[in-house]
Lab assay of single mutants.
Amino acid sequence: MIFPGATVRVTNVDDTYYRFEGLVQRVSDGKAAVLFENGNWDKLVTFRLSELEAVK
């Protein structure tokens, strides 16, 4: 189960963010908004829950 605050990895091989890890900001309607941070940039991207896996 994916909840806000969880760290997730993108599993969709066709996505630009494949294998990126980010922090879930919100979850609704089968989608999750994931925040990616890297140095001087932040990006908030929405994914279907089926495209994400929780990082242990």
Rank of each mutant, 00 (worst) to 15 (best):
A33I: 15
L44T: 10
T11G: 04
V10M: 01
D42A: 15
V8L: 01
K31T: 12
V34F: 01
M1T: 11
L44H: 05
V27G: 00
T46C: 12
D29C: 09
F20H: 10
G22P: 00
E51Y: 06
Y17Q: 03
R19T: 10
R9Q: 07
A54E: 09
V8M: 01
Y17P: 01
L44A: 07
L23F: 08
A32F: 03
R48D: 14
V55N: 03
V8P: 00
R9L: 06
L23D: 03
T7C: 10
T7Y: 12
K43V: 14
L44D: 03
L49N: 03
S50V: 08
F47K: 02
K31I: 12
E37W: 12
F3S: 09
F47Y: 14
D15G: 07
A33F: 13
E37I: 14
W41N: 11
E21G: 02
V13C: 07
E51T: 04
G22W: 04
L23E: 08
R9M: 09
F47M: 04
F20M: 15
G30F: 06
L35Y: 12
V45W: 04
E53C: 08
A54R: 09
N40S: 12
N12L: 08
G22F: 03
V27H: 01
T46E: 14
V13R: 12
F20S: 08
T11I: 14
F3M: 10
K31R: 11
K31F: 14
G39R: 08
E37H: 14
L35Q: 07
T7R: 14
T7Q: 08
N38W: 13
E37Y: 12
I2E: 02
F3C: 10
Y17W: 13
N40F: 09
F47L: 05
R26C: 13
T7G: 03
G39N: 09
V55L: 08
V8T: 01
F20I: 07
R48N: 14
L44N: 04
A32E: 01
V34A: 00
G39Q: 09
N38C: 13
D42M: 15
V55A: 05
T11R: 06
T16G: 08
W41G: 14
V55G: 03
E53H: 06
K56T: 13
S28T: 10
V45L: 07
D14P: 03
R9N: 03
Q25I: 15
G30K: 04
W41Q: 12
V34M: 01
V13A: 11
L35C: 07
F20K: 12
F3A: 11
Q25L: 15
K31D: 06
P4V: 14
L35H: 07
Y17M: 08
Q25E: 07
V8S: 00
D29Y: 08
K43R: 12
D29E: 10
N40Y: 09
L49P: 03
N40I: 10
W41F: 11
E21P: 04
A6C: 12
V55T: 07
V27P: 00
N40W: 08
Y17E: 02
F3P: 04
L23V: 15
V45A: 06
R19E: 10
K43A: 14
A54N: 10
G39S: 10
Y18P: 00
R26V: 12
Y18G: 04
V45R: 10
I2T: 02
A6K: 05
L35K: 08
K43P: 05
P4C: 07
T16M: 14
N38G: 11
Y18S: 03
V27T: 04
V55C: 06
S50C: 08
E37N: 13
D29G: 11
V10E: 00
K56M: 13
L35M: 09
F36S: 00
W41Y: 10
V45I: 10
A6F: 08
A54K: 08
S28G: 10
F47Q: 00
V24K: 00
N38S: 11
F36V: 04
F36D: 00
N12C: 06
K31A: 09
D29T: 05
G39F: 08
F36H: 01
G5Y: 04
G30P: 02
D42E: 15
A32V: 10
A6W: 09
T46M: 11
F47D: 01
V8G: 00
E53V: 10
N40Q: 12
R9H: 05
L23P: 02
E51I: 04
G5I: 02
K43N: 09
Y17T: 02
V10A: 02
P4S: 06
T16A: 14
T46K: 04
A33K: 07
V27C: 06
R9S: 05
L44V: 14
T46V: 13
D14S: 11
E21D: 04
K31W: 15
V13G: 07
A33R: 06
T46G: 04
F47H: 02
N40R: 11
R26P: 01
E53I: 09
D14L: 14
